[in-house]
Design a protein around this nucleic acid. Structure first.
Length: 345
DNA sequence: AAAACGGGGAG
DNA sequence: CTCCCAGTTTT
């Protein structure tokens, strides 16, 4: 199959996009001239997060922080609270840090200017500079990677290959629309497992379609092993107030949660971990009650937590209001053992 | 170049 | 169960 002709491809995809585009809350305003704050927040929120999921959080976050000034002025705890449950919390910490810079210096207007902000990489810099300022920078994300790998028949697309292909195909007349069009196509037609080739505007140029096995492009990435972890957690308190610790480090850093002690590799039961936990908290007087087990899957870990309980009188003066702290889903599951099932959103 | 980083949806 | 999602940062 000859290389796909860029002009024909652009015409076909943009024609499709002009009637099939998704109506999304961050797509207000003129093509290539959207509100940079709204676009920026959306792009950060949507990193490794599906659109259907992201839009739930988007409205809540913009209601809480309607402007970059409001975001910059807020304490980090409030930002993490608005991000609660959404995952990859470094995104919220970086967005907050970047908001401080933007509130001071103003919004960047170029790709390089955006790229310099914390939490903004090549994808986001291209997205915001094109969608809000009309810059001719091609986005490269999971959708773009899959669409271009299929059109060009490339099973092992590298990051550099995808970016080069995207740069070459970008419509210089409508860069913002082109970027959104490729992503919309990847999300709604050229999907990973069940592409709807009969509805695809690029079908006649698509090498993967011609091969008869479009889902073979690109080949699956290999996965990192999942680590099994057991831990003891102690719920000191009640359904309203509990003894919480603020987690540090990269994993759930900044969030609050129940004190947790991992079961070390040689230990056969929870008792040792629970004892370590009680000593660390200075609560060795009474034996906690076992509330139950919680399992929680993360990308590289599978946690099994035994949750123990001491009534709130055990730690007077050290209690945090649960409703005001940002907790991971893991901790909400643990709390649910005491207060009954509840939805976070 | 590879690992770490959440959580959920789709098949 | 596996794979993937409007990726970025750190190692």
């Amino acid at each position: 199959m000859p290389p796909a002709p860029a002009p024909a491809l652009r015409t076909a995809l943009l024609e499709w996009f002009d009637h099939a585009r998704r109506d999304l809350p961050w797509r207000q305003g003129p093509e290539g001239g959207r509100d940079p704050y709204r676009v920026w927040v959306a792009e950060i929120l949507l990193q490794q997060t599906q659109v259907s999921r992201g839009r739930l959080y988007y409205e809540r976050f913009l209601d809480t922080f309607p402007t970059v000034q409001a975001l910059a002025a807020a304490p980090q705890d409030a930002v993490l609270k608005a991000w609660e449950g959404c995952g990859y919390y470094a995104r919220a910490r970086n967005l907050h840090r970047a908001a401080g810079i933007v509130a001071q210096a103003g919004f960047p207007t170029t790709y390089d200017g955006w790229l310099a902000l914390p939490g903004v990489g090549p994808y986001t810099a291209a997205a915001v500079s094109s969608l809000a300022y009309g810059a001719a920078h091609a986005v490269s994300d999971g959708n773009v990677r899959r669409v271009l790998a299929r059109v060009q028949g490339e099973r092992q697309p590298t990051d550099a290959w995808v970016q080069a292909q995207a740069d070459a195909l970008l419509d210089p007349a409508r860069p913002a629309a082109w970027n959104e069009a490729v992503m919309d196509l990847g999300a709604t037609v050229c999907t990973p497992k069940a592409p709807d080739c009969p509805r695809c505007p690029l079908r006649e140029w698509c090498a993967a379609y011609a091969s008869g096995e479009p889902t073979a492009y690109p080949a699956p990435k290999r996965r990192a092993a999942v680590q099994e972890i057991r831990a003891a957690a102690l719920l000191v308190g009640d359904t309203e107030h509990a003894l919480l610790e603020q987690r540090t480090g990269t994993l759930l850093g900044g969030l609050f949660g129940l004190p947790l002690e991992e079961v070390k590799p040689g230990e056969k039961d929870m008792d040792t971990a629970l004892t370590r936990l009680q000593h660390r908290l200075g609560l060795v007087g009474t034996a906690p009650t076992l509330l139950g087990e919680v399992t929680h899957a993360m990308t590289h870990r599978r946690l099994q937590i035994s949750v123990y309980w001491l009534p709130g009188t055990a730690a007077p003066g050290r209690m945090t209001a649960i409703g005001e702290a940002a907790l991971s889903r893991l901790d909400h599951k643990a709390l649910a053992l005491l207060r009954g099932p509840q939805r976070l959103l």
